[in-house]
Design a protein around this nucleic acid. Sequence first.
DNA 1: CTGAAAGCGCTTACAG
DNA 2: CTGAAAGCGCTTACAG
Lengths: 332, 332
Amino acid sequence: MNLKTLAQELNLSFSTVSKALRDSHEISSITKNRVIAKANELNYQVNPLASSFRKQKTKTIALIIPEIVNDFFGPVINGIESIAQEKGYHVLVYLTHECMQKEIAIFKLLQSGRVDGIMLSLSERTSDTTHLKELNERGVPLILFDRISDQLDVSTVTTDNFAGGITATEHLIERGCKRIAFLGISKTLSVSTGRMNGYLEALKRNSMERRDNRIICCDGDDWENKKLIRNLLKSKDRPDGIFASVETLAISTYEVCAELGLNIPNDLKVIAFSNSYLAALLNPSLTAIRQPAYEMGREAAATLVNLVEKRVCPCHHQKTEIKSKLIVRNST
Amino acid sequence: MNLKTLAQELNLSFSTVSKALRDSHEISSITKNRVIAKANELNYQVNPLASSFRKQKTKTIALIIPEIVNDFFGPVINGIESIAQEKGYHVLVYLTHECMQKEIAIFKLLQSGRVDGIMLSLSERTSDTTHLKELNERGVPLILFDRISDQLDVSTVTTDNFAGGITATEHLIERGCKRIAFLGISKTLSVSTGRMNGYLEALKRNSMERRDNRIICCDGDDWENKKLIRNLLKSKDRPDGIFASVETLAISTYEVCAELGLNIPNDLKVIAFSNSYLAALLNPSLTAIRQPAYEMGREAAATLVNLVEKRVCPCHHQKTEIKSKLIVRNST
DNA sequence: CTGAAAGCGCTTACAG
DNA sequence: CTGAAAGCGCTTACAG
């Protein structure tokens, strides 16, 4: 079943049929209706390969993320899919496994028109963004979300990590914490830095810079991070508040507290950035700053589709920040 | 940069260049090497749209799943991606949100050659599989995984739900349980039924059919399920073992136990099918039957690719069952 | 071993 | 308003 046989059935030229199906203003509504009725009857559908090839448009967008077993990227995909479905796009998913070489290889696959645009969350080990620039120069629309880079002039969608960092820190201060330690990881680049800067800003606003607040860089494995936390909590000037930039560090903190016989929230208050349902189930339940992952996915997809369909000028770089949310639970 | 300009640069016809790039036996190795060197130099890549269109092959496979915010489908995608990358395939992801109409709509999108094959995990509300049959008759390879249907003759990849059900039940029996209640949900069709049948089989093997073992159908919301569990645990012949077919029901059981002052594992032993890292973090940690989600993804993708590349006859329906694993923790 | 030619199924600028 | 024709960039059967 193709255009030609459909045209024969209708005694029309196949250019007329093609135009009728695409609702061209050149075609009379009588003909359009005839064509559409026949197409439905014969269950005709435009061959997407031929159509894409001819138009050099695929109605496909690519999503490139570092990993998927994670409480953030699941809802992100959900959000992307909701927009894709609405706008008639298909979504290709690629994983970099936090590896720059894989990221580059994927970009190479996508450079010759397989997709109309790309949404990327950078791998933690991407130190060089030449591959992004090259692709963008070839005219493939690109947007970054969550893990972004400031080396590039492209549209981005992020959470308000800075504001979220302030909120988390001020929440601990309100709860009476005097010595707040920030547990950070350098791997997530822009994300962690934003949160840390928020933490520092909150201390400044509350004239607490000089007190025993500390930034602990937890870049090791689980065991090493726990060791750092253990030393911290055994020290004589141990903190009374922990701000974990990611949930896993909060869980390590819980485990060390159990080990040392420290009570949360009495001896130590804990807050973390977290999107998981686990946070509510921990004992005590964990006060969290939640990233609106679903909305970020929607926003990322909508921004990209606008770019692809040229509803916005590619020179216009939109920096969207989506508000995170404080969910107070029993750990503070 | 296309074949034509590349051919001009090389003073060769573009059919020769095309064949050289595809490593045709018709072309001398000297020419091949010249062509490849030039192609690399000029960063030429075959236009995938043109190539797909011409060959009617897209090197793309579709994954259709009910949802993604879930500890099962994340690792499944990981496994699929690992095979796709190895074999040079691209993966389109679609979500049905457990809705049959969406499932049908997605199948319609894929009927005209956009993908070379489809991996599907059925939506819980898919009662009619006509859309699957129609697509398969159009010659699009299809395989089912995890949530399968026996109304269809296609290759499938599943966990050994029946064997896992036996293992879980016998583990409780070994731990001394006399009255074991199975908490099931009917929504996941084949999956839950297999587990339940395993449970019944284990009782039979241990001559325990006549005792107070029960099957509780937990199809309501959280609140309703908890009510069922509460009534169960308050009854005078309350069970001393709970086999939860999904993790959420185990968590509800934990909550009810906390409420009623029952100690796990002393008063009640609990086991559940679960893939999440949460199971290890619960208090007490939850004994689980783990589905090998990553391996299932790999197996599903490998089976599909074999079908697409005609390495197996499409009439040969392979039923792969992957072993689940018992992970003993403190709840038993 | 190399090349000329047909054609995959559409879309669209152009002619009538 | 309808139709004839060119062409998107490849692949491949065929000729030489």
